[in-house]
Amino acid sequence: MAHGAGGKATQSLIEAIFLESFRNPLLEPLEDGAVFGAGTERLALTTDSYVVSPLFFPGGNIGDLAVNGTVNDLAVCGARPLYLSAGFILEEGFPVGDLRRVVASMAVAAEVAGVQIVTGDTKVVQRGKADGCYVNTAGVGLIERPGALGVAGARPGDAVIVSGPIGEHGVTIMLARGELDIEADLISDTAPLNGLVAALLDACPEAVRCMRDATRGGVATILNEIARASGVAVVVEEDAVPVRQAVRGACELLGIDPLYVACEGRLVAVVDGAVVDTALAALRAHPLGEGAALVGRIGEDPPGLVLLKTGFGGTRIVDLLVGDPLPRIC
């Protein structure tokens, strides 16, 4: 399920198998991309595979999702995205017309993001061995700013910002499968975040601790990664988290928590608490950050946990999900 993926189960799989075998200092932080030196430059490299179903959904398709996702992973590392590769795994019989649409969207998305797709690969597998079309993208970006960004960089007193209403992509996808008798006026939030990130870094270059795009597992999962890696508490105000009414309504019916729903064009940023107004102003001045909001603070205690202050003044633990969310209440 969309909101279940990316939880603790995935994380332990990654740690048990990939990290064990590939272990090296660049991989170890398990950030969205790796940052390394090449000559006098610092580069960032990232890769991601896209298996979304359905391939076409309100607000986008697997093609622009694949471009934006990799652009975003580079951007949140503090890199200026430059070049992308694109790999396709196609199921025998996949309509050529659909492939054209996917690829055309990729070209537009690359153009919008200011990157070039410079290499690629295509494989065709037997009917039934794949679900129409899978796309992999990898990307290289140039890091032009000094300083390191990373999930381990949050400190008590910092502010937690999201760049806009959350959960739109994940809910759109669930509804786009057409299995549920639910109507909602929603489109995916897929978008390239490099412009927005640049605006934020220009406004307060020294004050940004870390940024992530809240994809699989949603904002809750990202915040848990930050809390654990930084050894801090993340305290979120429930009422401050921007959620569109259509998303809230659909989530209520679906019985899921928007905090765990994937976004594809929303930034979670931790910034020095002293410059939060500057940061918010910079984000809000950008078309993709109009709905930016301060949603919480970094605290000292309890380290490693994300807490949600609810409307009634309660404090709920927002934990990393182990798998799909099974009810704990009885």
Binding site: L253, L254, G255, I256, P325, P327, I329
Partner: peptide, 9 residues
């Protein structure tokens, strides 16, 4: 349980 915990509430 349609909606998981929502079906409890």
């Amino acid at each position: 349980m349609p909606g998981g915990a929502a079906a409890v509430r």
